[in-house]
Design a binder for these strands. Structure first.
Length: 524
DNA sequence: TTTAGGG
DNA sequence: CCCTAAA
């Protein structure tokens, strides 16, 4: 475990060494300054990490050793002896001079290329393919995918010249402005197909962060360094049949004419491309047909692809003012109030929402009852077909009733956690009855969803905080859940998932059945 | 109706 | 949050 944490820290340090992948500035002038800046950053990070480590391992015997390791790790990056020997290399000094000044990649040996690769990406590579190495190095230095694999000269992180005069036929469409990194983040980019690249070799721009994003697990990368795709998720979840909607969508694509609107020739072409080339749809291909089509992600044959978005009529209940809503802009939602409500913390926690309800839940005539939601939904569903026939505008995708979004207050979260502790995860209706009786707008499904989100937060936020690395952009309007609560969630989750799902009357003796405030439980 | 799980 | 299958 220590080793893992250590490696994570090292990884973060390495990340800070390589040019930031989303940085839109090409460093031209002062590569040295660039390096030292990065070094300083990572020093700061390391210090954070080390203090964090000492805090979190107070109970650990190997505390000192850990601290030493952390300290060793916090030495300046310029000190070349700190190069981590993660992959067990004997010559542990990466040659940063390769990164400076003018380098003619063609003149380098494979070993030098590997060295440069390591200096850039912070990891060792065993690839001996000179072309691949050159391309990767160039991409790393220039922060661009649009690089040839040979004959290029890199200077100050830019391609300054290509001594071979072969021009690249296919890259004309890709804008080569310095800011392209941001615009290409989501696109698959076809590399200039020289040196025997198969036409179907794609490179995901975010390849180096690929491990962190679950969605891109199976992007086929032909000329990528061989790596193991980890297939985890070994939980025994209950298997689900494909939903009706999914089947419908699928047949929609296959039989081309379930909605007459969709059979415009251009769109059909786009769709055919999907069928013919089910692996990846290049966004530009779709665009080049003259019109831009929104695409959505789907999986075909196990591969993640973009398919044209098929607008479909919604089966849920329409909003109350549906008819009038059609006439207006369908995208206007009354947002003003809810964000303000989201900011409200646990102040009015005790009395539930009786005050707010009148204005915010227009559909509920009878207040504070459990079955409102189901009854109401059923009623409107019966009403629905007429409405849609009358409107006959299936274009509207939004503007349909959603339950008013209500941010979960800290108090609610704590009640939920407590309820789970008492009744067990899965007893949502009981929890709702007993702990959420005053919150008529929280259904048992809501509780379940929230609990699931809490668990996810546990898995993403907590480890990240231990590493001292901020996981994502912090949205200041979202109030983070205190780590103490997350810890409790984690405990409860582990406890109940291990305990054979049995409720195992929890031995966290709540003093009086009330919520224990802010007390990240003693151990751990 | 409730729960689980995908979206 | 929504939707739907299963229990």
């Amino acid at each position: 475990m220590h080793i893992i944490a250590q490696e994570n820290r090292l990884q973060s340090m390495d990340d800070s060494l390589s040019p930031p992948s989303k940085c839109s500035v090409v460093h031209v002038q002062q590569p040295d300054k660039f390096l030292t800046e990065q070094g300083d950053n990572s020093i700061a990070q390391q210090n954070n990490a080390s203090t964090e480590t000492t805090k979190s391992t107070v109970l650990n015997d190997s505390c000192n050793a850990e601290k030493d390791k952390a300290d060793a790790c916090s030495r300046p990056v310029d000190d070349t002896s700190t190069e981590p020997s993660v992959s067990g290399v004997n010559s542990s000094v990466p040659d940063f001079s390769i990164l400076r000044g003018e380098v003619r990649l063609d003149d380098l040996t494979i070993r030098e290329l590997q060295e440069a690769f390591r200096a850039i990406f912070g990891r060792q590579t065993t690839v001996k393919d000179k072309i691949w190495l050159k391309r990767r190095i160039t991409m790393g230095l220039t922060n661009s995918c649009d690089v040839p694999s040979s004959g290029c000269v890199v200077k100050d992180y830019k391609i300054v010249g290509r001594d071979s005069n072969k021009d690249m036929p296919n890259t004309g469409e890709i804008p080569k402005i310095g800011l392209q990194a941001t615009s290409l983040v989501r696109d698959q980019v076809i590399l200039p197909g020289n040196e025997g690249d198969s036409p179907s070799s794609y490179y995901y721009h975010s390849e180096d962060q690929q491990g962190s994003s679950k969605r891109f697990k199976r992007v086929p990368i032909h000329n990528e360094e061989p790596q193991v795709i980890l297939a985890e998720q070994s939980t025994n979840k209950r298997i689900r049949k494909p939903t009706k909607r999914y089947i419908e969508e699928l047949s929609d694509i296959e039989t081309h004419d379930s909605t007459g609107k969709l059979s415009s020739p251009a769109k059909r072409t786009a769709r055919d491309e999907v069928l013919l080339k089910p692996r990846v749809v290049h966004f530009h291909e779709v665009e080049s047909l003259g019109t831009t089509y929104p695409t959505r992600k789907d999986t075909l044959g196990g591969f993640s692809v973009h398919v044209p978005y098929v607008s479909r009529t919604r089966r849920g209940r329409p909003r109350k003012d549906f008819i009038t809503f059609v006439d207006k802009e369908p995208f206007v939602e009354h947002n003003g109030v809810q964000t303000a409500n989201g900011m409200m913390l646990a102040k009015e926690c005790e009395e539930g929402n009786h005050v707010r309800k009148a204005s915010e839940v227009p559909l509920t005539v009878n207040s504070g009852r459990g079955h409102i939601e189901a009854v109401d939904r059923k009623r409107v569903q019966n009403l629905q077909p007429n409405v849609y026939n009358a409107a006959s505008k299936p274009k509207i995708k939004r503007g349909l009733t959603r339950k008013h979004h209500r941010a979960w207050t800290l108090c609610e979260v704590m009640k939920l956690v407590d309820g789970v502790a008492r009744f067990g995860a899965g007893k949502w209706s009981e929890i709702r009855k007993l702990s959420f009786s005053s919150y008529s707008y929280r259904t048992s499904v809501d509780l379940k969803d929230k609990w699931r989100n809490l668990i996810r937060a546990t898995q993403t936020q907590l480890p990240a905080q231990k590493d001292g690395v901020c996981p994502r952009k912090i949205n200041p309007s979202i109030i983070p859940i205190p780590p103490s609560i997350l810890l409790r969630v984690k405990e409860l989750n582990e406890l109940q998932s291990q305990g054979g799902g049995f409720t195992a009357p929890v031995k966290f003796s709540r003093q009086n059945g009330k919520v224990v405030q802010e007390k990240g439980s003693g151990f751990l």
